[in-house]
């Protein structure tokens, strides 16, 4: 009895490349590998801009929560995480620029580790403490917002469209308020 099995036929069904709602358009600007990289770059710029936007912050910003002598540990953690992302992501197929971003971020994070270790010894003018603290904060935020690349997402997952906006907002919320409040 074919007729009895007939489903309530969906009156609507998408075209293969239908753009969807505004939120979905934002979520599907690219695949997570690329959009997370873009989000990470934006996070770096935004955090750096925020913690250095006033003259007051430029002279007296310090990394929140942890005492300054542990700053190198934060930098080291960021670098380790960044290199693990490079290691994992370089074995995947895909275009060039997410690879380049992961590599540049890991190299930057490593330089920052050297900076944090060298800074107490040097006390020089070219590495003022406030700027170093700002860079450590921004690199940490950028690495955190790239970290979901370590997760596994399958092609039928709803997270493909959600992961990047969610990561971007979460990282900013996690980093910016303590960074801005803690430094006064």
């Amino acid at each position: 009895m074919a007729a009895a099995d007939e489903p309530r036929i969906a009156a609507w069904c998408p075209e293969p490349l239908a753009p969807g709602s505004l939120l979905e358009r934002i979520g599907t600007l690219g695949l997570p590998a690329a959009t997370l990289s873009l989000g990470s770059l934006l996070t770096l710029v935004i955090v750096l801009g925020a913690v250095q936007h006033s003259a007051e912050l430029r002279s007296a910003y310090s990394f929140p929560v942890l005492p300054a002598r542990w700053l190198w540990l934060v930098a080291l953690g960021s670098a380790a995480l960044a290199w693990s992302i490079v290691g994992v992501a370089s074995r995947r197929p895909g275009p060039l620029w997410p690879r380049l971003w992961a590599l540049s971020l890991a190299l930057t994070a490593s330089l920052v580790v050297v900076g944090t270790l060298a800074q107490p010894l040097l006390q020089s003018h070219w590495l003022p403490s406030a700027q170093l603290h700002a860079v450590v904060t921004a690199v940490l935020a950028a690495v955190l917002s790239l970290t979901p690349r370590l997760a596994r997402i399958r092609p039928d997952s709803p997270w493909i469209a959600r992961i990047t906006p969610l990561t971007f907002l979460t990282t900013l919320l996690l980093i910016l308020p303590p960074a801005l409040l803690g430094s006064f």
Binding site: A10, C13, P14, L17, A18, L29, L31, T35, D156
Partner: peptide, 17 residues
């Protein structure tokens, strides 16, 4: 990448329907 992301989002919707 944008095309693939949209395509997968719609494929998922079709699967749900």
């Amino acid at each position: 990448g944008r095309g693939v992301a949209r395509y997968l989002a719609n494929a998922r919707r079709v699967s749900r329907l």
